[in-house]
Simulated scan of single mutants.
Amino acid sequence: MIRSVLRWGGNILTVLLVIFITFSIFAMFHAKKNPNNVPSIMGYKPLTVLTGSMQPILDPGDMIVIREKDPNDVKAGDIITYRIDQDTLVTHRVVAVIDEAGGLSFRTKGDANNTEDQDLVPKERLVGALAFNIPKGGAIADFAKTGKGFILFVLVPIFLLIALELKTIWTELSKGKKDSSQPKDPMGV
């Protein structure tokens, strides 16, 4: 019983790990094809935190997953990711929502920074809002993109999963052969 639960738990963890790594690899290839567009899967976008401006909430090396959000639904206190230029994204907290004749914009500040960001963020630069973060997930995803990481996080779990399934099949086939090779008592005794 315990062995079966552990095997199922291991299989579930392996599948989740393969999905996580596949998601990261998909994001990497998509980002290389179109560097101006953050890859999205069902509205969720994975990013890696590079600086400590949002510590202690977000540390460098954490993976954040942002979700697309209507700019009209952003409120003070939300953590948003926005584009400051073609190649640079920033994730900071909204300290004020400004709705003027020129349009909607946001005043932001990194939690670890002493001052608010100098420029307002127009709603057109909003990429999304923080859905959740995975501590050190970005570092793991970056390692998984290397040759050694791909082998460790993708190929090894896949081979282990296949080996476990082949062992299970072999065991079941062996049981079947033993059952069929035993002579049956014609008297049914």
Score class of each variant (00 low, 15 high):
residue 163 A to L: 13
residue 76 A to C: 11
residue 97 V to T: 09
residue 50 L to T: 07
residue 154 V to G: 11
residue 136 K to A: 15
residue 55 Q to E: 15
residue 142 D to Q: 12
residue 113 N to F: 12
residue 89 L to W: 00
residue 125 R to D: 13
residue 143 F to R: 02
residue 99 D to M: 00
residue 109 K to D: 07
residue 80 I to R: 08
residue 130 L to N: 04
residue 78 D to Y: 13
residue 72 N to V: 12
residue 113 N to C: 03
residue 137 G to E: 01
residue 48 T to A: 10
residue 87 D to H: 10
residue 151 I to K: 03
residue 135 P to Y: 05
residue 77 G to Q: 11
residue 50 L to V: 12
residue 67 R to V: 11
residue 108 T to P: 04
residue 109 K to T: 04
residue 118 Q to A: 14
residue 158 I to W: 07
residue 84 I to D: 05
residue 28 M to T: 14
residue 52 G to M: 12
residue 92 H to V: 05
residue 79 I to R: 08
residue 92 H to N: 09
residue 35 P to N: 07
residue 47 L to R: 00
residue 58 L to D: 02
residue 28 M to N: 01
residue 153 F to L: 15
residue 130 L to W: 09
residue 140 I to H: 04
residue 121 V to K: 03
residue 120 L to N: 13
residue 144 A to T: 06
residue 27 A to G: 11
residue 110 G to H: 03
residue 39 P to Q: 07
residue 92 H to G: 01
residue 114 N to G: 13
residue 39 P to Y: 14
residue 62 D to V: 11
residue 153 F to W: 09
residue 90 V to S: 04
residue 30 H to Q: 07
residue 84 I to F: 06
residue 45 K to C: 06
residue 144 A to S: 13
residue 161 L to T: 00
residue 158 I to A: 14
residue 118 Q to F: 08
residue 130 L to M: 10
residue 31 A to M: 07
residue 50 L to R: 06
residue 93 R to A: 10
residue 42 M to N: 12
residue 68 E to L: 09
residue 157 P to R: 02
residue 83 R to Q: 15
residue 45 K to F: 02
residue 64 I to K: 00
residue 105 S to V: 04
residue 106 F to P: 04
residue 164 L to A: 02
residue 103 G to D: 02
residue 102 G to E: 13
residue 85 D to E: 08
residue 123 K to D: 14
residue 57 I to L: 13
residue 81 T to Y: 09
residue 59 D to K: 11
